[in-house]
């Protein structure tokens, strides 16, 4: 098993209820996982815990036999080798596209850095944009820079938080295809969060659905197909959807 997440529990310090309750998931190398769920169900929380930006109450995370956290270890985010693409991209506004991508490559030698920069710029098809600043890019281009920046240091695992939420419908379609190609080309294990079922179906090898901090469905997209109505339907009503799937699991 490449990534093993076991029994992770977490609640925010100022909240009563658990933001995440006994989250368990095993992921194969190169697999694309989608976390699906309504707003507030805990999707971002899972990613933040994996990245080390929050400290879990209990649980264990192991990637490639290295323990990132358990009851006596807690590896700081900068030591984890996990890349993250933020919901709002978080591109450093004071740095150019190239500088943003080079940001995480400080351990490499100069020539190596340059080569890697070219590689990832090509991967996201932004070769000619290295000198621009983030605010001089379109939403879709910014998103691709964010992916390039996260991929550049060769992380074991890449996490993407609602990568399409800031884009218009047309761009969403295009970026979705791009992302799939990029992830597969780079053969990176990845987890991405979305509240749009269509994204999950098109991109994911496996879908995890969260409800109120608990997993209520894990499986291949085709196992969920009966709830997937027509292309263009943005958010199927969760009610009927959950019942069907609960029955599906039982």
């Amino acid at each position: 098993m490449f990534v093993a997440i076991e029994d992770v529990c977490f609640s925010y310090s100022n909240a009563e209820t658990k933001a995440l309750d006994n989250f368990t998931l095993k992921i194969e190398k190169g697999e694309v996982i989608s976390i699906l769920g309504r707003s507030g169900s805990g999707k971002s929380t899972v990613l933040r815990l994996l990245a080390g930006l929050e400290k879990p109450e209990k649980g264990r995370l192991v990637i490639q036999d290295e323990v990132l956290f358990d009851n006596k270890t807690f590896l700081q985010p900068e030591k984890r080798g996990i890349g993250m693409v933020f919901q709002d991209y978080a591109l450093f506004p004071h740095l150019t596209v190239a500088e943003n991508i080079l940001f995480g490559l400080f351990r490499m030698k100069k020539a190596e850095k340059k080569k890697r920069l070219q590689e990832v710029l090509e991967l996201v098809e932004l070769q000619d944009f290295g000198k621009r600043y983030p605010h001089q890019l379109s939403g879709g281009q910014q998103q691709r820079v964010a992916i390039a920046r996260a991929v550049a240091p060769n992380p074991h695992l890449i996490l993407l938080d609602e990568p399409f939420s800031n884009l218009d419908a047309e761009l969403q379609g295009k970026i979705r295809e791009d992302l799939r190609d990029i992830l597969k080309k780079a053969n990176i294990t990845s987890i991405f969060v979305t509240h749009d079922e269509k994204d999950a179906h098109i991109l994911a090898d496996r879908i995890v659905r969260l409800k109120d901090g608990r997993i209520d469905f894990v499986g291949r997209p085709c196992d969920m197909l009966d709830t997937y109505r027509q292309p263009g339907m943005q958010q199927p009503s969760t009610k009927g959807f959950v019942e069907k799937n609960l029955i599906g699991i039982n």
């Binding site: 933040r48 930006l53 900068e78 080798g81 993250m84 940001f103 351990r107």
Partner: peptide, 13 residues
């Protein structure tokens, strides 16, 4: 805190 978090996931303390 997003920029800080981004920087840390990129390996900076």
């Amino acid at each position: 805190t997003n920029f800080r978090d981004a920087s840390r996931t990129l390996g900076l303390g």
